[in-house]
Amino acid sequence: MPENTPNPLVDIDAWEAFCDELKAAGQQIIRPEAPIDDLSRAEGWRYLTRLTRIALDMFMECSDRDFPSFYRPSHETAKIGADNPDNHYLRAEINGAHDYLISGPRGTVAYLGFIAIAGGYEEEDGNMRSVGAIDTHSGLEINADGTIDVILSQTPKSGNWLKITEDTLAVLVRETYLDRSTEIFADLKITRLDSANSKPAPLTGAKLKADLANTAAFVKGTATLFADWAKGFKENPNSLPPADQEYCQKLGGDPNIFYYHGYFNLAADEALLIEVDDIPQCDNWNFQLNNYWMESLEYRYVQIHVNKHTAKYRDGGGVSIVVSSQDPGCNNWLDTTGHAEGTMAFRWIGADRIVHPRCTVVKLAELAQK
């Protein structure tokens, strides 16, 4: 090394600490209550690689808050916390001390919502709390040319204004489809309004070290959080109790959504019958199946969820959903895709009232006779 060349701030110890933290996250996959069948265990290890991919986008590739960009924090091959198969998720990292503009074509999705977030799963308390929200349910204004503009700032603005706070660190977008095959998602970009910088600053050792640490902490924190959730759901199987709605909001939940989470555990000759006798007025509702790690099952190729648009309704207006490993020939059958057990979720989105679903375990032979 030349005499006047400084020693690098980030040496191999930062990389080794990153690798050690990722290694420690593996303990969540072998917790004693977790399933030990080959499918669940294989999905668990894959889940950690997916969390790592998400975290690398979040903290390494898209973390410049002067030059923010949207990335997908959950999608078809990287999933977190009962990700909604009807959603196209976007997220951008921001600094609550500055103002930003989100703009672009509104698209045709049934529901479009923006949430400003403080905190994250990489932090000690694991909270990803909402500090402000604006959405189509509450009157998001659309421009005459079909585009939208949303200002993010601490002080109120005219038009579409999303409140942020000093500790805001990200904005999360939910674009909710009724039918993915026909609807067009909003094509959005985000720009900092008060930046004097013309180009991003070079990467520094200090930032790289912090980004590595946050990436690993996110993987470990997220894996731990939802393994804890699954453990709790498993204690009351084949039911869909209402979630703690206030707690859901602390973890980035949409304030227009009423959440239910549960656990299915079925024998090969059993099915879970989920019934809602009265469907309230709502922007959407849906039910989905997840694996133990709270990843939605493979919705690109298999029917693992149903919503307001895709459901077939009973003559009286209610709905019955059937969960099983084999097709019983019923309406709204959802395929467990080889899973004997796993988690599940039900949502009311923008509902004018709440109607609780009820669950019953039945024999497949009984369903075939109906």
Rank of each mutant, 00 (worst) to 15 (best):
Val171Thr: 01
Glu175Ile: 08
His137Trp: 15
Lys199Thr: 13
Lys199Pro: 03
Asp135Gln: 03
Ile164Val: 10
Pro156Arg: 14
Ser195Trp: 09
Ala196Arg: 15
Ile151Leu: 08
Leu193Glu: 03
Leu188Val: 06
Val131Cys: 09
Leu140Lys: 03
Ser195Thr: 15
Ser138Gln: 13
Tyr177Arg: 02
Thr147Lys: 00
Ala133Thr: 12
Glu175Arg: 15
Thr182Asn: 06
Gly126Phe: 05
Gly132Met: 07
Gly132Asn: 09
Ile134Asp: 08
Ala170Met: 03
Ile164Arg: 00
Ile148Ser: 04
Arg129Cys: 04
Asn160Leu: 10
Val150Trp: 11
Ser130Tyr: 00
Thr168Arg: 00
Ile164Ala: 01
Ala133Cys: 11
Gly139Lys: 10
Ile151Thr: 15
Ile190Glu: 06
Ala201Leu: 11
Lys189Met: 09
Thr168Asn: 00
Ser138Asp: 15
Ser158Trp: 03
Lys199Asp: 10
Asn197His: 15
Gln154Met: 10
Asp167Gln: 07
Phe185Gly: 09
Lys163Ile: 00
Trp161Pro: 02
Asp145Cys: 08
Thr191Leu: 13
Ile148His: 00
Val131Thr: 14
Thr147Cys: 01
Ser181Phe: 05
Ala196Glu: 11
Val150Asp: 04
Asn160His: 09
Ile190Ser: 07
Thr147Phe: 01
Gly126Gln: 13
Ser130Trp: 00
Leu140Ser: 01
Thr136Pro: 07
Ser181Cys: 06
Lys189Ile: 06
Ile184Asn: 04
Ala201Arg: 15
Arg180Gly: 05
Pro202Leu: 08
Asn143Glu: 07
Asp135Ser: 12
Asp149Pro: 01
Leu203His: 05
Asn143Lys: 12
Lys163Leu: 11
Lys163Tyr: 01
Ser153Gln: 04
Pro156Leu: 07
Thr191Arg: 14
Ile151Arg: 14
Ile142Asp: 02
Asn143Met: 07
